[in-house]
């Protein structure tokens, strides 16, 4: 069972409620877009699922196990996390950075096996980084760096990928590259929860959408169900343009109200 269940989750910091009573689940093979205005609690929700955030209420189950009880190492094999922007404090080579994804599978006394290296090479190939594998990450472009982060995450072979704005700052081509990588992951039965700000991409490429506002889950469902023009306009407090192209509908933030 590789389902992810978030049940009754609340987070408060001091007197302030950051998240209150969040319930949803993610099935395997599903890509879920997490959207909402700035400060709505998207990143906190993601950190809560990762076990990085102290919960004031509720539970998170990943692969059928409560993240509070499961060992950190087991959890690390279930989930991979791509933080917003992402940093590499030292200028590692692409290969060595991607290899960090295998850390949950190694110990001090068992270094990476040939199988681990094969997985690392596969991840590099999958993300089209073969020619860059000996480059230092400090010399990469934004698009290349985003793919390196992605390769590192999938080399952990996670059942659930959590990505915080992986396509922010990317041009359309690199943006679609990452989206394709996420979709490929889902095609292999893995699931992904992705924080986004691009409403049209969310609508077009994700199986389901979760919308947060002021720490509350205001909608969850397929994009067609929940991303109606009026609802999105109200949630984000902007005017929305809706259109049709090739029998697909799309939305676009149009102007401030």
């Amino acid at each position: 069972m590789t389902e992810t269940i978030v049940s009754n989750l609340s987070v408060s910091i001091g007197q302030k409620d950051i998240l209150s009573n969040i319930n949803f689940s993610i099935k395997s093979g599903e890509t879920v877009g997490l959207i909402g205005p700035n400060g709505s609690g998207k990143t906190t929700l993601m950190r809560s699922i990762l076990g990085l955030q102290k919960l004031s209420k509720g539970e998170v189950f990943v692969g059928g196990e409560n993240i509070k009880i499961i060992s950190k190492n087991k959890l690390a094999k279930q989930m991979a996390f791509i933080p917003q922007g992402g940093t590499s404090e030292w200028p590692l080579t692409v290969e060595n950075l991607v290899a960090l994804g295998r850390l949950p599978y190694t110990t001090n006394f068992s270094p990476p096996s040939p199988i681990d290296w094969e997985i690392i090479q596969n991840s590099i190939d999958l993300c089209g980084l073969k020619d860059l594998s000996t480059r230092r990450v400090s010399s990469l472009s934004g698009g290349e760096w985003a793919r390196v982060c992605f390769a590192r995450a999938i080399s952990s072979e996670p059942n659930l990928l959590l990505a915080d704005e992986p396509i922010a700052f990317l041009d359309p081509k690199h943006c679609f590259q990452i989206i394709t990588l996420i979709k490929n992951l889902a095609a292999r039965g893995k699931s992904a929860l992705v924080i986004l700000h691009d409403l049209s991409i969310t609508m077009r490429f994700f199986d389901r959408v979760i919308i947060l506002k002021d720490g509350k889950l205001v909608a969850v469902g397929s994009p067609k169900e929940v991303m109606s023009e009026n609802f999105i306009a109200d949630t984000f407090e902007v005017d929305i343009l809706q259109g049709q192209a090739n029998s697909e509908s799309f939305i676009m933030p149009w102007k401030i109200r």
């Binding site: 076990g51 959890l75 690390a76 992402g86 850390l103 001090n108």
Partner: peptide, 24 residues
């Protein structure tokens, strides 16, 4: 100190990622 090698590698990616890679 020698046992911290893997954790220090993980910390290259920041504390959140290191934690998500299973390090306490």
């Amino acid at each position: 100190l020698l046992t911290t090698g893997r954790a220090l590698d993980a910390l290259t990616l920041g504390e959140d990622v290191a934690s998500s890679l299973g390090f306490n």
